[in-house]
Nucleic acid binder design. Structure first.
Lengths: 334, 334
DNA sequence: GCCTGGCACTCGGTATCATCGAGTGCCAGC
DNA sequence: GCTGGCACTCGATGATACCGAGTGCCAGGC
């Protein structure tokens, strides 16, 4: 598509623009390593790169800026994912060495880690508990007609539902239902919950158990996918227009949007979504670097970095790849 | 301290500046209702208000801007908290009418409600579960040497600790410890956990139970106080300097800081903390309106609104007061 | 035929200067 | 003691000129 020289010029422009955030002129590129031609030649090539849609000029007498297509070519030809700089690799290692405690806190810390590694915003989506077997179920009476159902999943996640009963039920009945339910749904996943219960013979117990089952069954899968955003303040330095900052922050606030955003990108087989590739108008100036992570070969959650389109893709890709891999092994070991 | 005329001029300046975000000149004030003097007189008064530290001039030939002291006088003499506008009152009512489900989600939604009411950022601190009695304790074995301890509090909160055991313990031992522990700590609060356990006679059970107790006892009270931030994107429109935006977002990211910030302000008996009154340099241009809420007369958590120092205090005070009150009754009813 | 030095040209950024006007401080007079 | 009047200040706005980074293009040379 692009001959060697055009390619290296384009890559040099993107590289330079990522570093300086300033329009890049032919002079700078001519001096760049790997480009051994005069600035005049570079100018000619740049002109054709512009007509082909890889670059734009903010105004006539200015240097060039990459377009979305330009960034896309850049990341597509980035070659090997590259490795983290050694200090960063150390940071990741010591993070996972020290990681312990509740999985939620750990994932939140992971989002901050991603932010720290890349200088942008880190995002972590916790796997839906839909596909994780239930390890234990327990009912606790909170008020005469209110019962709290707590399920512990195999991954250490806790799912709870506050349930309003239609009639008052004594404590011993709640306990009976608890035992009854445990026998039925422990070991199943939320998506394969028993449709109906073996009747236990006692009316109240059936009533409670059925209500609880319904509560578990009706919770949408997305609501069990928690989202952790680390380093949201970096958004302020990522974009110069205040309203862009506001819009991007607005996206990050809507966790459901973030979940589907990451899922969509991963489903399309992308590691990087640039500008309109994210499918969101409000992220036109942004880019997202994602990686899914798996547990037992099962697609689980995903992690990502959200930054400006002119982010350092090589670095971000390395960070996201490394962290997702370490996260996998960490979660597998427990 | 300030005579009537100075007071109403100061109040008019603050009011006007809150609305326009522009330095206020003597002409505008002379036309303001309640000020029936000429602009020349206003000028004289403004000059003395400036020497007394209530106002400043950005530059010689500009209008005046309130200082922190000026805002402070304004809120101190604001009189009655005022009521919400009727549409807003409706919004609050329908919110609490529709509120149901898990307490965490409800509080998060409350933070968004506060943000929506005031156009700034809403903050909700969930009460520490330290002072809420434990309703149920349950141990679940996750791996040979890993046990998850789940405690349900009286308010529907769930506290969990993943516990690494020193030696492998069979499932029946874990269950025994679970029953044993439940008998001991159900009904107590985290701060009054039994220091030691009645020995059960079985070594393994004692070991597990003791480890669990230690885990519950060593969790600091702050870590059980969750923070919900709603409408963080509003920060972008609250301040014009990008770095201020970044700093304020940075504060909101540190949940522990937010907890102590709100607590400090409440403890000092304030409803409003302006600029340096927050005790944080990074919030020099910001103001915080807070209200604690109680359950059973017990100080529980607090809610607040974080905005620019030139926020509409009357409105924010009304919003915070109304929401905290409705929240109290909502939580009391369950 | 392709590259390159050279050159005229473009145009945003910066500096200079004048003008405008909102706002001020102050004073004399009512 | 208040107010109208007035000289003054100074940021904002706009016109003008200039600079220079960068461009497109052409003619000459390898």
């Amino acid at each position: 598509m692009l001959d060697d020289r055009k390619a290296s010029i384009l890559r040099a422009v993107v590289q330079e623009y990522i570093e300086t955030a300033q329009p890049v002129g032919s002079g700078r590129i001519a001096k760049a390593p790997g480009v051994d031609v005069s600035s005049a030649t570079v100018r000619n090539e740049m002109a054709t790169l512009e007509t082909e849609g890889y670059l734009v000029q903010p105004h006539t007498s200015a240097g060039r800026i990459p377009t979305e297509k330009g960034y896309r070519y850049f990341v597509d030809t980035i070659g090997s994912p590259g490795a983290l700089r050694s200090e960063q690799a150390k940071q990741v290692s010591s993070f996972f060495r020290a990681a312990h405690g509740e999985i939620e806190e750990m994932l939140e810390a992971t989002s901050r880690l991603l932010s720290g590694l890349t200088a942008w915003t880190g995002v972590v989506v916790q796997p839906s508990s839909t596909e994780v077997p239930i390890r234990s179920v327990h009912l606790v009476g909170l008020a005469p007609k209110v019962v709290l159902a707590v399920a512990v999943h195999g991954d250490g996640t806790v799912e709870k539902h506050t349930i309003e009963l239609e009639r008052e039920v004594g404590e011993e009945r709640v306990n009976a239902a608890s035992v009854h339910l445990a026998g039925q749904i422990v070991g199943s996943m939320r998506s394969t919950l028993p449709a109906s219960l073996r009747p236990s013979g006692v009316d109240d117990v059936d009533h409670v158990a059925a209500t609880v089952l319904r509560a578990f069954g009706s919770a949408p899968a997305e609501s069990t996918e928690e989202v952790f955003v680390g380093g949201a303040s970096r958004v302020a330095s990522a974009f110069d227009a205040v309203e862009t900052v506001q819009q991007v922050l607005g996206v990050l606030e809507q966790h459901l949007v973030v979940v589907t955003l990451l899922r969509d990108v991963v489903d399309r087989g992308l590691q990087v979504a640039i500008g309109s590739e994210t499918g969101m108008e409000t992220l036109a100036d942004a880019a997202l670097v994602v990686a899914p992570y798996t547990i037992d070969g099962q697609r689980a959650g995903s992690i990502g970095v959200l930054g400006p389109a002119r982010m350092n893709y090589r670095e971000a890709l390395a960070a996201v790849a490394t962290v997702s891999q370490r996260l996998e092994t960490h979660l597998a070991e427990g």
